[in-house]
Amino acid sequence: MGCVSSKHVVKHPPGYEDPVILASETAFTVHEVEALYELFKKLSFSIIKDGLIHKEEFQLALFRNSNRKNLFADRVFDLFDIKNNGVIEFGEFVRSLSIFHPNTPKAEKIAFAFKLYDLRQTGYIEREELKEMVLALLDESDVFLSNDIVETIVGNTFVQADLNGDGKIDLDEWREFVKKNPSLIRNMTLPYLKDISMAFPSFVMHSEGSD
């Protein structure tokens, strides 16, 4: 009949990027990027059906509750939102998750964690920021520690990490500190990412590349 079958017309949301390009710039293979697109679609259509991950959708995926406020989830969201326009696009999602890939060099993970903890983006983790994060963590975990104990923990941390004693932790000091305490970046690696195409195999059915 001369008609082009609509099943071959794949419409992508704004911010969609070619998996081949994304794979060339990240730790993922093309198939893994395509599998990540399945996860991305699930997250980005969970509340606001526009193919972009909004903060509420991110919170829903992390906490099963779209209204749950969390300082650290906010920071992760803001760092994933590279364009800083209030939503996470597919390209941003893949590039950011690539930091968490087991094959990504530690240096990148260390730098990402530093940005995460540098709440006010001054280039330093300051004492007040560290205390704010400790209080946020205690609040989320319903653990009560007295102000004296919190001050002791923060103070001890600065004794160990603030090598030049200027009252703030810079990136070099952070690198040294992580070298001595490698467990601090354990959460910067997601083993799931090695098996992502197994976890979301349905991409094979939808992939343009498989045509």
Binding site: L39, A61, F72, L137, S141, I153, T157, Q160
Partner: peptide
């Protein structure tokens, strides 16, 4: 309970930093 060695040990346990949850079905 023992006081953790450093504040970052404590912080790194936040649920908000556990992105593994994104992959749970």
């Amino acid at each position: 309970k023992p006081v953790p060695m450093n504040a970052f040990d404590l912080i790194s346990t936040s649920q908000g930093l556990n992105l593994g949850t994104l992959f749970e079905k």
